[in-house]
């Protein structure tokens, strides 16, 4: 009994907001003005939930850092942790395949192992020593979030590209002490006015 989980983990996966995809280097791919507005709306929404968040883990890519900078303003005192594990990539070859997106095979080996490591590292039931329910925010990327959702629900991971996520949207997973997983919301962006919703 000492090794049994007792708490529930709430995982909030946030897709970064709209960014300038023209830049060649990651540092040049900064948020657009609309992207900054979207992040404000997401931050406002998260704050309005009235939850005491435990931490914000974010991808080390520029667009995720900038999204986190804005969201953090609405969640004062919540610790931020940067990780390379959550960087964008090609998690697994999608089925059915798509013609407009064909990464090299080696990309799946590199990114796939890393994104799977991110899943195992961050998505699991609470440790036995965790006494209270936790609420954690992960600011990352569409492919990473879609893969994590497939893995967490034990759905075939190669189906990840059949889902679509808006910028700044909120995906909420609940992991019970029994290990049961519920997807409470997928890509919620209903808190944004329609003209500010994008998927770039």
């Amino acid at each position: 009994d000492n090794f049994k989980a007792r708490a529930t983990r709430h995982i909030f996966l946030i897709r970064h907001s709209q960014y300038n995809s023209d830049g060649c280097l990651d540092k040049d791919r900064t948020l657009t003005e609309l992207g900054r507005e979207q992040a404000e709306l997401t931050g406002c929404r998260l704050a309005s939930l009235g939850i005491k968040f435990d931490k914000i883990v974010h991808s080390s890519m520029t667009r995720a850092i900038e999204t986190t900078d804005i969201i953090s303003k609405y969640l004062p005192g919540v610790n931020r942790i940067s990780t390379d594990l959550l960087r964008e990539g090609a998690p697994i070859e999608p089925d059915p395949p798509v013609s407009e997106w064909k990464p090299e095979a080696r990309q799946y080996y590199e990114d796939g192992a890393r994104i799977e490591a991110a899943f195992r590292n961050f998505i699991h039931r609470a440790d036995a020593k965790q006494e209270e329910d936790s609420y954690e925010i992960f600011v990352c990327h569409a492919n990473v979030i879609r893969y994590i959702v497939c893995r967490a629900l034990q759905f075939p991971p190669e189906g990840w590209l059949r889902m679509s996520l808006n910028n700044g949207s909120i995906t909420h997973l609940v992991i019970r002490p029994s290990g049961r997983v519920a997807l409470r919301t997928l890509g919620d962006s209903g808190f944004m006015p329609p003209e500010k919703i994008t998927r770039t």
């Binding site: 594990l85 590292n121 893995r151 034990q154 991971p157």
Partner: peptide
């Protein structure tokens, strides 16, 4: 292929592999 994905829920899904 990661995970069971055979339609049967694996309640030990997060205990089978090291976390990282």
């Amino acid at each position: 292929r990661p995970g069971p994905c055979n339609g049967v829920w694996d309640s030990n899904w997060d205990k089978r592999e090291p976390r990282s």
